[in-house]
Design a protein around this nucleic acid. Structure first.
Length: 461
RNA sequence: GCGGCUAUAGUUCAGGGGUUAGAACGCGGGUCUGUGGCACCCGAUGUCGAGGGUUCAAAUCCCUCUAGCCGCCCCA
């Protein structure tokens, strides 16, 4: 430490030290131990998805801007004001300047890959999942970041592969219910004051139903829209569907009197929706039909859904959302390839699990953190090499091991060890000479001498 | 993009114009030289978010910026 701690010493430091570089707004570092939870979530996801025969797809984070303009929709908020987009200048005469975008979602990217690799020509139904970062330039708040992670899956293929079947919609929804169950998120019920997940389901109709409905909605809104709040007046013009999920109290009466999408579904769409519900009933997946559930992306047709949860997310209570997109492939210049998919907000899923863990900790007291198998404490630096070598052999045997340092006082080694490990392995001059370690178990305080050769087995017990 | 609240030690937070900025936990040392957890004692914590202004004097009051949180918008 510098002896002088005066103000001038501080400003000297100021002059020589560059200002620190910080993570940019809306992005964040994930650190241990939190990352352990992320890994747990991701391995549960991979295990569950694998049981449903999904395979992983990894697409670039960077795509042509046009992909989202055509796929997600030029007029959506995501595309019109939230994308990170820039011109990639041409570097050679032969190269064309191109507008690039950091992906704000990944369904368009997956469908682009489906088309580009002619996956439809296999004739097989494609079941693909992804886990990765997405980017949207929004005002950050709890559960909403500029770089955020989505876990998503898509079922897509030619009609002959069964991609249009209601069975697929139900399978995807049932898989999501299973995933949330396995992650330990309760289902909303009276018993837990509806603090759990809830599936909201709707059908927005086919690509011909939807325009008919929107026209009817516009017509119904025209005479009444002046009585609504400014936001809804604007929506009535730009995107009448959005009026439906307005929370404005005063407007609810008007909204409830608007035409219902269900009355504008053609027979095929109605039958499809009925089949989805029947299959969910057969699987015991609870849902609530919400005729006012509309989604913000242009590509959705027929089945749309959202899972909400009343835990730890504040106002961002949508945990995941998705739906069917029977015309997306064609919008992107591909063959007819109906599909259905979803995206889970992984950050929100983590927040939910943390909130759940917190309330459990309050109810049941802090659970003991998982401890590693052993902490090796060399008594002086002379034993450091032997300590590291011993750790190597224990780790090779599959044990989780931390090594202290010979410069630590034994008291400190004990404190460190007790905090993180089930046993401490003491290595002094005598132990190294005889290849026999002194082992103490913290659970019962039992201490014994164990030959190095038997140590791994003894520590496992 | 709009509005509100907040920013002090590694962490959680007190202090709201006046010597040298505090507590708890954590960290380092000691009582205790190869046996910890408890207790007691000592110690270091820090550009008081950044920049500017008011004042004899600013962590404290004012302005701007940045970031976080809460709402709106929107979505995952």
């Amino acid at each position: 430490m510098t002896p002088a701690k005066s103000r001038s010493a501080g400003s000297d430091k100021l002059m020589t030290m560059a200002s620190i570089v910080k993570a940019i707004r809306g992005t964040r570092d994930l650190l241990p131990p939190e990352t352990a939870l992320w890994n747990r979530v991701e391995s549960t996801v991979r295990a569950v998805f694998a049981r449903y025969n999904f395979g992983e797809i990894r697409t670039p984070v960077l795509e042509a801007t046009e992909l989202f303009a055509r796929g997600v929709g030029e007029e959506t908020d995501i595309v019109s004001k939230e994308m990170y987009t820039w011109e990639d200048r041409a570097r050679a005469a032969s190269e064309k300047a191109q507008s690039l975008t950091l992906r704000p979602e990944n369904t368009a990217g997956v469908v682009r890959a489906y088309i580009e690799h002619k996956l439809g020509d296999t004739g097989q139904l494609q079941k693909l999942y992804y886990i990765g970062p997405m980017f949207r330039r929004e005002r950050p708040q709890k559960g909403r970041y500029r770089q955020f992670f989505q876990i998503g899956a898509e079922v897509i293929g030619p009609t002959s592969s069964g991609s249009e079947s209601a069975l697929r919609d139900a399978e995807v929804l049932e898989m999501l219910a299973t995933l949330l169950d396995e992650l330990g998120i309760p289902r909303a019920s009276a018993a837990n004051e509806y603090k759990g997940w809830k599936l909201h389901l709707n059908s927005v109709g086919s690509s011909t139903d939807r325009p008919r409905y929107i026209a009817a909605l516009r017509e119904a809104l025209a005479p009444v829209k002046d009585k609504m709040c400014p936001d809804n007046q604007r929506r009535a013009e730009t995107n009448p569907l959005r009026v439906l999920d307005s929370k404005d109290e005063a407007d609810q009466e008007i909204i409830n009197a608007l035409p219902k999408i269900a009355d504008y579904l053609d027979e095929a769409s109605m039958e499809h929706f009925a089949q989805v519900k029947a299959a969910l009933d057969a699987c015991g997946v609870p849902y609530e039909v919400n005729p006012r559930l509309v989604r913000g992306l242009d590509y959705y047709t027929r089945t749309t859904f959202e899972f909400t949860v009343d835990l730890g997310l504040g106002t961002q209570n949508a945990l995941l959302g998705g739906g069917r997109y029977d015309g997306l492939s064609e919008m992107l210049g591909g063959p007819k390839a109906p599909g259905i998919g979803f995206a889970i907000g992984e950050d929100r899923l983590i927040l939910t699990l943390q909130a759940l863990e917190d309330s459990r900790a309050v109810a049941e007291g802090e659970p003991a953190a998982a401890k590693i198998d052993a902490y090796i404490a060399p008594l002086s630096t002379a034993q450091n090499p032997a300590a590291l070598a011993l750790a190597r052999s224990l780790r090779a045997a599959g044990l989780e091991v931390e090594v202290g340092d010979g410069s630590f006082r034994l008291k400190k080694s004990f404190e460190n060890a007790d905090r993180i490990a089930r046993s401490i392995v003491i290595l002094g001059e005598d132990e190294v000479a005889a290849s026999i370690a002194t082992v103490k178990q913290f659970a019962d305080g039992a201490q014994s001498k164990v030959a190095f050769a038997e140590l791994a087995a003894a520590l496992k017990a």
